[in-house]
Design a protein around this nucleic acid. Sequence first.
DNA 1: ATGATTTGACCCTA
DNA 2: TAGGGTCAAATCAT
Length: 238
Amino acid sequence: MERQVGGRRDNAIQELLKGREFTCQLRLLLSLDSKGGCAEDLVGKILSTFTHTISLLNTTAAATATKAESFDEVSQLGPRKSESSSGDTDGNPSTSKNDRPAGCTKKRKLAASRSWVKESRTLVDDGYAWRKYGQKKILESDFPRHYYRCTHKFDQKCPATKQIQMLQDRPSPLYRTTYSAHHTCHNNTLHDSSSHQHFLMDSAVDSTTSCHLISFNNSTTTTTTPFLASFSGSSSAP
DNA sequence: ATGATTTGACCCTA
DNA sequence: TAGGGTCAAATCAT
């Protein structure tokens, strides 16, 4: 199903590439004729339309592809204003579910817009200490979504959270990790913020070659990071 | 004993 | 009202 859609998209891209090539040739002819810039301008616009459309299609394809990776706001580091309300609930353990501040709903919305996604064939130890706080069967996926927050959420009010979801397990596993908010904590177990940057940089390339990546499968987990270990055993929904 | 994970329930958004 | 995110008690691991 998804493969069919991907195949159609590839065909569309191929057709667009042809169209762009033809338009290039047309522009070359027009420039040789040197008959005014009007037609050439038009061809230029057509070309840019082709290029833009191809780019859009490639972006869409990348979102579901193995090495796909999109960063909405990667450049934004440090604490976020929108997370302030997180401290309302986090810093106040006595706050019950029933009297959550109204602002937390707004926070959820904002946090969602300030997130970035990474997809890879392996689960990544990003150097931070994560604590799992939930797992949910997602409607559109056969695999449950795992929810993690920073271990230092309470002691350092670190707002970072992430969600890990297996998109497929065959022929090879594919995971989508959605990060929300950046770490504001400092005493991370393995790395400092600079190595976190390194991780982000690494994730822009093929994640399977990243030095931070960890071999992962159902039988063996070569990591000491708790969240990876727990994820291995919980990929099957109850 | 302490900290992490599991899991059902609650709550909010669309 | 359904789906998704979070909470928190129960359970597990060290």
